[in-house]
Design a protein around this nucleic acid. Sequence first.
DNA 1: ATGGTGGCCCGGCCA
Length: 257
Amino acid sequence: MRIATWNVNSLTARLPRVEEWLAYARPDVLCLQETKQADAAFPHEAFAALGYQTAHHGDGRWNGVAIASRVGLDRVAAGFGSAEDDQGTRLLAADCGGVRVLSVYVPNGRALDSEQYPAKLAWLARLRRLLEETTSPQDPVAVCGDFNVAPEDRDVWDPAELEGLTHVSRPERDALAEVEAWGLVDAFRLVHPEDRLFTWWDYRGGAFHRHRGMRIDLILVTEPLARGARWALIDRQARKGAKPSDHTPVFVDTDPV
DNA sequence: ATGGTGGCCCGGCCA
């Protein structure tokens, strides 16, 4: 089972690139973030034409998450379960081929002194509570998405240059570690221990060609999926060419063991 | 040159 995640930075702008990628990568499940669409605008038919069922949770201009699956899509759950608890349409869950899949778009945080920064930490804590409330680390669970946190120094181009900035701060990394401590491991790292393998590069300043990026898009899996992990890849091809997202997809090949 | 790029959609926010 191939499980993928991709922050597409507007599905309206990116649909041709997503269709192209689905046709050659053929993931069984693709989690999308930053669709920037309302539910009524989501292009379910384009995915259906490629053999994928889809679910979307978005309210228009900002954020928006989706799951596309060709191995079933059941028990779809949008958000954290209550309106006041679900500001921003950043979470969607579904059962796909025997795996509980979550597509998550963690708040950016903006800066360490921003009011958005503690909100980011709180969002990650709320994600852990949702996992505790709705599933078990003994079950096959994949939490996929843009975490807006680079887990370790080997996940950024230059730790010294990022000192004092968001995505690498100790509290953010601790908050991510608390989610993982529920019973998740970073599936990409089961296969690739190398440093400086990135999933996001700023559009500005030729960052992609200068290899100035971060690995902030993660597939976190429970033990049954970790045991079955055989292969993982960050597909840099999708960051090249015409009208790319600033993120590129990552996938893991695994089956529950 | 106190910027840069690209998405939303048209002035400014967001990443």
